[in-house]
Each structure stands twice: as C-alpha cells, then as structure tokens.
Design a protein around this nucleic acid. Structure first.
Length: 286
DNA sequence: GCGGGCTCCTGTTTGC
DNA sequence: TGCAAACAGGAGCCCG
C-alpha cells in the first residue's frame, strides 16, 4: 500500500519526468477514478488541456502538481494507485484509469489503479498557513518529513484528543502520512499499545511515538528510493516495499525481533493491528 | 466540534 | 476441485 514514503518516490518521479510539459489531452477510462471531480471526466479534461505542469508537491499521502494557472492536479493513490510515465506505444495496463497526453513525444502519464480507491482531480488551490495547497488538502496536517512540521504542536494536539493512540496516528488532520503499516511499526518501536488513550500520553511519550514514525518512514523512503527506475514513475509494490524491515506488521505468529514473543494480530477498525503482547502492554483502563 | 463507524472496490487468499 | 466468504485498507461521509 502506498504510504508516505511510496508517495514521495512517485512525487520525485513525476518531478523528473513530467514537470515543464504541457498537457494536450486527457482520456478517462474509468469514471470512478475521477469521482471526486465536480463535472466528472469532461471537466477534468477541460481543466487540464493546455496547462503546463509547474511543480510536483506532496503532503502526507496526497500528491499534486501545480499548474500554470494557480490550479492543481491532485492525485491520491489509495491502496493500489500508480502514476507511470510510459511510451505512447506501450500496451495499456489492465487497470489503466486515466491517460494524460502531452504536446511532446516524451511519453504519456498514466494513472493505473486496481482497486480504484485512488483518484485524480483538477482543483483550485487555497492559502493555508502561508502555503498554497489544493482545496481538498486544506484540512490535512503537515507530515513529519515536512521542514515546517511542528512537533510540539502535534504533541499537544495528540494529548488533547479523547481517543486511542492508533486512531490518532491514522487521523490525517493532525499529522499526515502515517498509514496502518507504519502506525503498527511505530507503536512497536516505542513499546506503546494501539489502544492507549491519547489523554494519558505524557509529552515524552507523544514525542517518542512521532519520532519513531518519522524514523520508520525515513528508513522506508531510503529503501523505496533504491527501487526507483528512471524509465518509470514507479510505485509498483512487489519489488519496493516487501523487503522493508518490518518488525510486526503482517507477521502474526512470528517472533518479536526484540523479545521473541509471538506477534499477535487483532481486529481494529475493519482492519488489523499487529503487536507484541510482551513489549506492548494492553492499557489497564480504556 | 469531535469521535467513531460505515462504505466504496476488486484481486488474492482462505475455508468448507 | 470449486465455490463462497474473508481479507486488504484510505478517507469521505454521516450520525450521535
């Protein structure tokens, strides 16, 4: 699943292969990929045609390209989305959803998405906290890799919440970029339980868990970078992120790398949490 | 305003 | 062997 590190790899690819180019046409092959676009496929095509891509930017798991008219092309990869720069004569991918052609012959940009949780939209931008961002991103918090990320503000925000720690980590409005995989890995690193009430977190606890999230995503980014192929804007998972050093995620029944206790999986918000029952004590009061 | 549960979707895996 | 159910999960939306 593309989380922050994978989206950053894609952003770099878009920056290298698509910036400075001018869109000539847009073809939508699946309406669900543009379901968040007011006006649908025709509106997306109308807003993008003739526009030049100015800069590739990211906040958390949201990726966008600034256009030369102060609007933006916003992409979210969802669970299975990819942005690929492909030669025009390359056969269409099975799950190709949107195709952007340019007014040059350096390949087309393809949005490919098997499970269609992702999407592409052309949107207005707005000023938030001294920075122009797409309107649908206005409520998304800065991610820990953002130079302007405010750690102490995030620590305070977590401690004010009346919820459980993992829920808070997955909430993109406070701190963005952390998904299910990195939430579990971060909690394991600092020996905290996913159900720990955020109200009982000490400031050092909150700093440690955010520090761990930053650390694990930085490490994954370093690995994701190595799988980058200059021919593609590549986020195809298989090669890139299965050799990540995951301690607990997806490792039910395997020994905890720290203490050897079998990793446990529990249901959480219609998905899974992986954790070590020895290192991560269940909070007494919930 | 905030918290929490539901929903969307499809290929793969698991279980009977 | 074959079919059906479970599973994966980000984020918008709606309700209390």
């Amino acid at each position: 699943m593309p989380e922050l590190p994978e989206v950053e790899v894609v952003r770099r690819g878009v920056a290298d292969h698509a910036i400075g180019r001018t869109v000539s046409s847009v073809e939508v092959l699946h309406p669900r990929a543009v379901r968040r676009q007011p006006g649908g496929a025709s509106e997306l095509a109308a807003r993008l045609a003739g526009r030049t891509l100015v800069a590739a930017r990211r906040r958390g798991k949201f990726l966008w390209v600034d256009l030369d008219d102060d609007s933006a092309m916003l992409a979210h990869l969802g669970m299975s989305g990819q942005l690929l720069v492909q030669p025009e004569d390359r056969p269409d991918e099975k799950h190709l959803r949107v195709r952007l052609r340019f007014d040059d012959d350096r390949g087309e940009l393809r949005f490919v998405d098997q499970r269609t949780f992702g999407g592409l939209t052309a949107v207005d931008t707005t000023e938030v906290d001294g920075e122009r961002v797409p309107v649908p991103v206005a409520h998304i918090g800065r991610d820990p890799l953002d130079p302007r990320f405010d750690l102490e503000a995030a620590v305070g925000a977590y401690r004010r919440r009346r919820t459980e720690l993992k829920r808070a980590l997955l909430d993109q409005t406070v701190v963005s970029g952390i998904g299910n995989i990195y939430a579990d890995e971060s909690l394991w690193r600092v020996k905290l339980h996913s159900l720990r009430p955020t109200a009982t977190l000490t400031r050092p606890d909150a700093r440690r868990v955010l520090g761990a999230a930053t650390e694990v995503m930085t490490e994954a980014l370093a690995q994701g970078g190595t799988s980058f192929d200059a021919l593609y804007v590549d986020v195809h998972g298989e090669s890139g992120y299965f050799d990540r050093a995951l301690a607990v995620y997806g490792r039910e029944g395997e020994p905890c790398p720290r203490c050897g206790t079998a990793v446990v999986r529990t249901a959480f918000m219609n998905r899974s949490s992986f954790w070590c029952p020895t290192c991560q004590k269940v909070p007494r009061r919930r």
